[in-house]
């Protein structure tokens, strides 16, 4: 009986050690990671990415979204893109590169007090349309700009 008690104690200790390792970030099971929309980010086309991310591909062109990117990027490894939305109740901004192997590059969820302006650096494999998709008041709006790339940023 005593022997069994030992085993029970040991296994309890082992289990709690694993739990501590997870919480300390030593082990990283998938469940510990925060939400990341795998199907949207790994989608191979713009339409597939939009369907996975927003459940819809119906977007309206809007002149209230300003996309600033260089017309010609010398180095595709780092292209500075600014998306500015003056649409009321902008709550999400996504940046897609049409010709990249995985078009969806970044998605930003904004709080009510975050302004609809985001600047970031992206990689571009080759010349492509850069597409900004803005979710405002439950609807999708978009604008795009062609960027010419002289040196590709994806292994080029």
């Amino acid at each position: 009986m005593n022997h069994h008690r030992r085993i029970l104690l040991k296994s309890t200790l082992a289990a709690s050690a694993t739990g501590m390792a997870i919480s300390a970030g030593l082990l990283t099971p998938k469940a510990v990671l925060a939400a990341w929309n795998t199907s949207a980010f790994e989608a191979k086309t713009v339409d597939a990415a939009l369907t996975s991310a927003f459940g819809s591909t119906s977007t309206a062109d809007s002149d209230k979204i300003k996309l600033s990117a260089p017309d010609v990027a010398e180095n595709g490894a780092s292209v500075t893109v600014t998306v500015k939305s003056s649409l009321p109740r902008t709550d999400a901004i996504s940046i897609l590169v049409a010709e990249n192997a995985q078009p969806l590059t970044a998605s930003f969820d904004l709080s009510p007090r975050t302004e609809g302006v985001i600047t970031t650096n992206i990689k571009m494999g080759k010349s492509s349309d850069v597409i900004a998709v803005v979710k405002a008041d439950g609807k999708l709006y978009t604008t795009k700009q062609q960027v010419k790339v002289t040196i590709g940023g994806c292994g080029g």
């Binding site: 990341w36 780092s78 590059t105």
Partner: peptide, 9 residues
């Protein structure tokens, strides 16, 4: 709250 892909620089 940003979700990024490998295509961010």
């Amino acid at each position: 709250d940003a979700e990024l892909n490998g295509s961010v620089s």
